[in-house]
Design a binder for these strands. Structure first.
Lengths: 361, 361
DNA sequence: CTGAAAGCGCTAACAC
DNA sequence: GTGTTAGCGCTTTCAG
């Protein structure tokens, strides 16, 4: 790799001038500037960011930790962040915590050694503790929230989304609405759960803890929880399910299939977070959609604004709206006549908004 | 951030000793070592990798460029790489080219400034040219291949996979088998295409260029191509489709649905690359599966082996097998009686291997 | 076994 | 406008 020395030598100037020509073009005479740029091009010069970062204390680098890069929601967050960072000349280092606080801890330590100028974090339950060790690092909490008092956060309206999903099911006539909910030490899970409970109460329905099962955000957690709920005796079994994240929703659908329950005739399902899978499964799934890409972009923009000295007074909390997208996985409950759970011909499709046209771009 | 100076001072030693105590424990007396380690722990010392990398010329960093992080196949490659790198104490910097040679070029330049010790690249068509500019960087080409003579590559057996898929359709009795194929400047696309053609010839069927349409690996390319092929007059329309990658397969399935063609009664489909979507769609999709995670791991292991001086003579090309997974998207063609494409009761499910049990772990 | 000192590539004072 | 020089944090000779 050619160094700036090589460039300077070829251009017959000092390294200082070469450096200025490349980074502060207006501090150098037109002709020398051109000579330096030509030399740089000729050598394929690429500044060594290690040296530059070491010297300036500015790496133009941000760290990103998501909990599961294989989850399309997180992959989309990451893409939004990287695209935004790129537009501003920053590079984003992406790490995975796999929902594991210990891995998150290690990722943070590794990251720290690379002197990122800021961090965008989808926190695990351990994050609050971990972040104490790095009090000077500007952090944006994304999607979930640690509860640190002065945190900068970019989230979605989980409360509104949870309420909309639950109300939708209530309006269809469901009274036994089960919920599969994420870990209760994760903010999104509790918010969605609380909204569900509040919506039930508001409608005069009782909240039945037996119909609420936790899972650790993975597909098989959803599968197991749904299996349990759907195996309850017919007069206890929920006629509708609100599932607290996208991966668990897949599991819940597969469980319903394994039990030969038809969706929506025998069971209505509303998922959280939209995805191609939700759009194209049979039947297309009613979901609470989140603007994942935009969440990533906003988190990055917000972080970079905070990094620039000028933007000292930037908003501390951004919240993006959710949208309930009605498709075909919800319907009024089958009227239980004999107490058996057979199909009920009176079950009808709910009104739907358009949703499964030609593929997205 | 505390520096090694701070540690040295607290431990009452020189920075040299502190450095040795941390990186070469056996070069330092037991007691001093303990003193240094304690000081380091106490201060939360984290080595500055910029300074270290600058000094040693070794960053313990590798670059990774995939073409589409939102594609689960690529996300899985990336995860395999990162997990493997992590096990060896390396960190992987992940970039996206979005199938765009210009973006790939920029990613390479950015990466180069970070002095990665090696690169794992899913190349675009521009890669061969781009890599000329960095002849000293050890590169592993992953999934696809640039065709550079001495390249180190980790790929799957596209030829075997393409042949198996095509033969499967032929054995079911299909004679008009369409193919939606990737860009012909991408090695995986040409290999799969060649295998398809060879399998047709081997079975005495003629290769009909009108039944082969290219796409740029995205869902909507598959949609458009399938729309075109499936809108051909009934006696020209293919009764089966072999689709050359996972995203385009989604598009093809949606096109079939849009045209109200039943799968597999009216149309058999075999996709390339397995995914949760393929497993859980209706009907479950017959696919040529690739070991994506393992591809990533192998690429990383291979690269790191090449980096260690000892492993000078490591294999240059690794190829992993593909597996044809029979599910329910293929069946014998409907016997064309009146020339109309109505359903044929003689269409039957093919024998299948187990495929859609409870969710994966 | 430990310390002093040089130097990785770069930029920012500070001179001229 | 340009050159000289120091120093970012670290590791590694080279002495002792």
């Amino acid at each position: 790799m050619p160094s700036i020395q090589d460039v300077a030598q070829l251009a017959q100037v000092s390294t200082a001038t070469a450096s200025r020509a490349l980074s502060r073009p207006d501090m150098v005479a037109q002709t020398t500037r051109e000579r330096v740029l030509k030399a740089a091009r000729q050598l394929g010069y690429q500044p060594n960011v290690l040296a530059r970062g070491l010297r300036q204390g500015e790496t133009r680098t941000i760290g990103v930790i998501v909990t599961d890069i294989l989850n399309p929601f997180h992959a989309t967050l990451a893409k939004g962040i990287q695209d935004a960072a790129d537009r501003h000349g920053y590079v984003a280092f992406l790490f995975n915590s796999d929902e594991d606080p210990a891995k998150e801890r290690r990722a943070l330590d590794t990251l720290r050694g690379h002197l990122p100028q800021g961090l965008i974090l989808v926190p695990t339950s351990g994050a609050r503790e971990h972040l104490k060790a790095m009090p000077d690092l500007p952090v944006v909490e994304l999607d979930r929230v640690t509860g640190r008092p002065d945190a900068t956060t970019v989230t979605t309206d989980n409360t509104g989304g949870g309420a909309a999903a639950t109300r939708h099911l209530i309006e269809l006539g469901h009274t036994r609405i089960g919920m599969i909910v994420g870990q209760q030490d994760i903010s999104t899970a509790t918010e969605r759960h609380d909204a569900y409970r509040a919506a039930l109460h508001a409608a005069g329905l009782t909240y039945d803890p037996a119909l609420v099962l936790p899972g650790n955000h993975r597909e098989d957690d959803g599968y197991r929880a749904a299996m349990h709920l759907l195996s309850l005796p017919a007069d206890h079994r929920p006629t509708a399910l609100f599932v607290g994240n996208n991966e668990m929703t897949v599991g819940a659908v597969l469980a319903a299939r394994a039990l030969s329950l038809r969706i929506p005739e025998d069971l209505s399902i509303v998922g959280f977070d939209d995805s191609r899978w939700a759009q194209t499964m049979t039947p297309p799934l009613t979901v609470v959609a989140q603007p994942a890409y935009d969440l990533g972009v906003q988190a990055c923009e917000l972080l970079l604004r905070r990094l620039s000295a000028s933007g000292n007074r930037t908003p501390a909390r951004v919240q993006l709206p959710t949208t309930l997208i009605l498709r075909h996985s919800t319907a009024p409950p089958a009227r239980p006549r004999s107490g058996a759970s057979g199909p009920d011909p009176s079950a009808a499709h709910p009104p739907v908004t358009p949703s499964t046209g030609p593929p997205r771009a």
